[in-house]
Each structure stands twice: as structure tokens, then as C-alpha cells.
Amino acid sequence: MGTTTLKNIIDAISTIAGILFCGFALKGFLVPNQFFDGGVTGISLLLHELYHWNIGYVIVIVNIPFIIMGAFQVNKTFAIRTFLAVIGLALCLHFIPYPQITSDKLLVSIFGGVFMGLGVGLAIRGGCALDGIEVLALYTGKRISFTISEIILGINIIIFLIAAIKLGLPVALYSILTYYTASRTINFVIEGIEEYTGVTIISGQSEKIKEQLVMSLGRGITVYKGERGFMKENFEMSHPVDIVFTVVTRMELRRLKNLVEVIDPKAFIFTSLIKEAAGGILKRRARH
């Protein structure tokens, strides 16, 4: 079996699992309790509650414009996969008799969001999107001076305001909690425990630190030439220093800090979240 075929099979399994989890979140938690999510799913749920249209049909119809945008903003393969996934979700909602799990509002908010985020995240890892709000944000962001995050936030604010007016403030507030839980779960599913963190280390013992990072931790490093010192009491005095930068996973971060602390307890370390990393000696990650 070729590598491409294996990847396609893994993508298909991930997408199918995502569809099943989304269907479970919708019919087991959100729809029976009139709760909402953000994004395209939130729009679909809002239309379903206001006009009592079949949720499966609504999800397909609402997603069509975003699928068309995806063909131009991403590529045609992405659009085709997304269309098939949305159709699959509609069929799943229509034919699978998911039971209603609970009517407890807090449980619905949290676990409805968790399962929805799990489904959307798995679909993204499979190379498609069950919620096309980011495609809209990407399309809009090229025409106005707002970031993608700001556009998504603005769209969701409108959704939750309409929900508050039409269905009451408590429903809107619980739905915001659902959206937050779903978004955090999506991030975890996509990034996983191997979410990458950039680490910058400034120390007078940089030679030893570089050696330990490469030989003990097995990380690649980049070295910037800089100067340290410039204290208030002797501002004119400074010393050349190697500024060490490396990228580690979330699981490796504590080990790195412990390693540096043994060499130089006074070392200055700061970290930054890296959303995407590839190449170098990084571990190969699942495509999404």
C-alpha cells in the first residue's frame, strides 16, 4: 500500500469519526436543549430554532457558500472533501437515532462543546471543514483591515446577540460557554500534546546549554549573536552572548527548563506558542 493511499485512508477515518462526534454533539446535547455553537454550525442551529427547519438540510444549505469560497481560498480538493463531509453529517443527523444525553444546562454547554470540538477537529485533521467560518474570515480578511480572529469574533458576536434577543439571554450565555469549550477542544485535537513551543535562552553558559540541548534533549538549535548586560548601575558595560533558540513540544518543555536550570539557575528563558512548525528535525505530524 502506497504512502498516499495510507494517508487518504487515515484522512477518511478521521473525517468519518469527526462526523459521528458532531452528530452526537448536535442530537445528543445541543439541538434538544436549544443550545448553540459559534460559526456556521451556530448559524444553522439558530435558523433551525427560529424557523424549525430540518437541521440536516439547514447545515448543508448554509455550508454551500463557504464550500464554494473554500474552492477558491484553499483548493478544490478541500472543497470536495468538505462537501462530502457536510453531506455525511446531514445523513448522520437524519438516520442515526442519537439519544438525548442530558437536560442539565451546564453539562450540555460543556460536553456538547467538547464533542462538537472533537468532531470538527478530527475533520480538520482529515483535510476538510465541518464549520467553514474560517474560510469566510480568510475571504473577508483580504478585503478589510481586520485579522481572521477579529472577523470570527465579530460574526460570533452577531450570532449570540440574535440568540439573546430571540431565545433569551441565559441560552445565549450558555451557548457562549459551548463555543468556548468547542474552540479549546478543536485546538487540542489539531495541535495535540505535541503543540510546539518556541524557547529562547539567554545565558552566560550558552556553550554548555547548546551542547545539552542537542546531545541530551535531541533538539535542533538556532543561535543569534547578541549582547547581555546593560544594567542600570553600569549601563555602559555589556558582554557578547549566544542567544539560543529551539522548538520543543509541550511535553518536553519542563525537561528543557530543568536542564537549563542545572547549568545556569540565572538563565533568562522565555517561551512563545508556535501554531505551525515543519521541516528541520521536528517529528513528522499528522496532516491537517
Rank of each mutant, 00 (worst) to 15 (best):
Y224E: 11
G70I: 07
G121K: 00
F78M: 05
I87E: 08
Y51M: 08
A71K: 06
A25L: 03
K208M: 14
G168A: 13
F35R: 10
G218Q: 10
E150I: 03
R285L: 15
G226R: 00
S183M: 06
A90E: 04
G88W: 03
G126C: 00
Q100H: 05
A137V: 01
L177T: 15
G18W: 02
D131K: 06
G141F: 09
E261C: 11
L26Y: 11
S149T: 11
L153G: 00
Q100T: 15
I87L: 15
V214N: 11
M69P: 06
K105A: 13
Y51F: 15
V62P: 03
V108K: 05
V58I: 14
A163F: 11
D131N: 11
E211T: 13
H288Y: 13
E227I: 10
E150Y: 06
P97D: 11
N8Q: 12
E236K: 02
F72M: 06
A137L: 01
I43H: 08
G198S: 12
L256C: 03
L273S: 13
V40Y: 11
L107K: 06
E236S: 11
T82N: 04
F29L: 01
L136Q: 01
A163D: 15
F146P: 05
G132H: 08
I165L: 15
V62T: 07
H288I: 09
K210A: 12
V62M: 02
V120T: 09
I152G: 05
K208C: 09
I87C: 09
S109Y: 02
A71L: 09
F188P: 07
I55K: 03
F111A: 03
F95M: 04
I19E: 00
N33W: 00
K142Y: 07
A137E: 02
N54C: 10
